[in-house]
Simulated assay, not measured.
Amino acid sequence: MVTCFLKYKINPVKIKEFENYGKLWIDLVNEMGGLHHGYLLPHEGANDVAYASFSFTSLAEYEVYRNKIPDSPKCMEAIAYAEQTQCFISYKRSFLKPVFEGISDQAKLFY
C-alpha cells in the first residue's frame, strides 16, 4: 500500500470553497479505486494550511488513477473549480508507506 499525503497552502478567505473542493476529490478518489482518508482543514493555529491523504494498493495503481484523470469529466470539473475559486495556492505531495500494526500484533517480538 502507498499513501499520498498532501500539504496545501490554501487561501484563508476561501476555506469553504476548499472544503467543497476536498469533498469532490474524496468521491473521485474512492470511485477511481483509491481509499481517501479525508481532508484536515484549519481550526486553530495557521489558517492557510490544510492536509489530505489517500491510499492505493501500490504506486502502479496510483499511476493508473493519475492517468485516468485527464479523461474524466468529473476530475476536469474539480480541477476547473479549484482554478475558478483559487481556493488553494500550492501543494506538496509525498508518498508514504503506512504502518497499521503495533508490536503486540506481531507473532514474535524483536526488541
Rank of each mutant, 00 (worst) to 15 (best):
D105N: 08
E17W: 10
G102H: 09
A107L: 09
E19W: 00
F5A: 07
E83M: 12
D71R: 02
I79P: 03
Y81F: 14
G102L: 15
L41W: 03
E101H: 12
C87M: 04
I26Q: 02
S104G: 02
Y65D: 01
K16Y: 01
I89W: 06
T57D: 13
I15R: 10
K92W: 06
G33H: 01
P42C: 02
A52S: 09
V99C: 09
F18D: 13
Y21V: 05
N20E: 12
N30R: 07
S58N: 05
Y81H: 03
W25E: 00
N30Q: 13
V29L: 03
Q84L: 12
A107Q: 06
E61F: 02
D71I: 02
F100W: 07
Y81L: 10
V29W: 07
A78P: 04
F100H: 07
Y65M: 02
E44T: 11
T3C: 12
S58L: 06
E19L: 07
M1E: 05
F56G: 00
F54H: 15
E17P: 13
D48E: 13
R66L: 10
E19I: 00
D27T: 08
H37P: 03
P42M: 01
L24G: 09
G38V: 13
Q106M: 08
S53I: 09
L109E: 13
Q84V: 03
N11L: 02
G45L: 10
A78Y: 04
A50I: 14
K16R: 10
Y51D: 02
G45K: 09
P12H: 00
P12Y: 00
Q86F: 03
S104D: 15
K92A: 15
A52N: 05
C75D: 12
E101K: 09
D105W: 01
I26E: 06
G22W: 00
S94E: 14
A80Q: 12
Y81C: 05
E83T: 15
V49E: 14
A80N: 09
F56M: 03
Y62T: 06
D71V: 00
S94A: 10
F18T: 08
Q106V: 07
A82S: 04
S90N: 10
Y91W: 06
G102I: 11
A46C: 06
I89P: 07
R93S: 06
A52E: 01
Y81N: 03
N67F: 01
L40I: 14
F56C: 05
P70D: 04
N30P: 11
C87Y: 01
L6D: 06
G34I: 06
I15C: 04
I26G: 02
R93N: 06
C4N: 15
A107D: 09
C4L: 13
S90E: 05
L59Y: 15
D27E: 11
F88Y: 12
A50S: 07
K108S: 14
G33S: 07
P73S: 04
N47F: 13
S53W: 10
L109F: 14
G102P: 01
W25I: 03
I79Q: 07
